[in-house]
């Protein structure tokens, strides 16, 4: 059977990652907000059950990390640390190990970045790091592409979730390759799939959810909105709408028009059309 003919398996209405059921299908980043207060309000408005954080160098006698952690812990969302900026498997592995100790979680959003222009994943380094981290007990959330071969390798490495990009990080371009993403959804009907990166508008998120994607991870589209708190609420509504539409079952598109109003009983139906 052609992979595209396979429909995604019926999914529960709640999103679960590594056996943990989550209150929302939105995962929200914590960077680039106008202020910590607005970030906290946006997370609340988004209803996100997972927030992403990074690790960065701490200044001597600095307490920036501690203050940030206090703020994050008050959000009552689960913390997903990332390996953003890592260029090799080795860097990503060390960062993941530091994150596990610092944040007391074995969850890691694994990023191995191939180049600075597109910030696209280095799939070879990603698979290498995913294998090592999974063996070490990590629950890996890999930032990947729609490449099916790499996805198979990530699953074989122990990943129970995949996070393909919609478009390059921070670009806001939406779903650059809808065909590839539909293929991926059809090819892995039982694997939780999260669109990570590139989502710029609630309509992008809704489109991904209508395809059957399980969740959306985004940051810039909310943080850089004119009103991040309202935009967070807009994304929550769009993701909910898209998911509900997917579960309801979308109509098949048709090539030609077909009247929605019944034809039978149409007045004047038996008369020849007149121009005036």
């Amino acid at each position: 059977m052609n992979a595209l003919d396979k429909r995604p398996a019926p999914a529960p209405s709640r999103f679960a990652a590594y056996g943990t059921e989550l209150p929302s299908r939105l995962l929200l980043g914590t960077a680039q907000y106008p202020s910590p207060q607005i970030m906290a309000e946006a997370v609340a408005a988004s209803q996100a059950g997972i927030v992403t954080v990074s690790l960065r160098r701490e200044q001597a006698r600095g307490r920036t990390g501690e203050r940030f952690l206090e703020l994050i812990r008050d959000l009552k969302a689960r913390i997903l640390p990332n390996t953003a900026g890592c260029r090799t498997a080795k860097e990503a592995i060390t960062t993941a190990q530091m994150a596990r100790e610092l944040l007391d979680t074995d969850w890691i959003k694994l990023e191995v970045i191939a180049n600075d222009d597109t910030l696209q994943p280095d799939l070879f380094g990603l698979v290498e790091a995913a294998e090592i981290l999974s063996r070490d007990g990590f629950k890996v959330f890999p930032y990947t592409t729609e490449d099916l071969g790499a996805a198979d390798r990530l699953i074989a490495a122990g990943c129970e979730i995949l996070m393909p990009w919609g478009a390059p990080i921070g670009s806001g371009r939406g779903l650059a390759n809808p065909y590839g993403l539909k293929t991926m959804r059809a090819y892995f009907p039982g694997v939780p799939l999260v669109i990570d990166a590139g989502v710029g508008a609630p309509s992008h998120a809704a489109a991904a959810m209508e395809m059957g994607y399980d969740a959306i991870l985004l940051n810039t589209a909310v943080a850089k909105a004119g009103d991040p708190v309202r935009m967070a609420a807009a994304f929550a509504a769009a993701i909910d709408a898209g998911r509900t539409a997917f579960e309801a079952g979308l109509m098949e598109p048709r090539d030609m028009a077909q009247p929605s109003t019944p034809v039978a009983g149409t007045p004047f139906f038996d008369l020849p059309p007149r121009s005036s």
């Binding site: 914590t30 690790l55 952690l69 990332n82 944040l103």
Partner: peptide, 10 residues
């Protein structure tokens, strides 16, 4: 030597 702590991230 790297000494890191938590920060904002996407």
């Amino acid at each position: 030597i790297e000494v890191v702590s938590a920060r904002q991230g996407g």
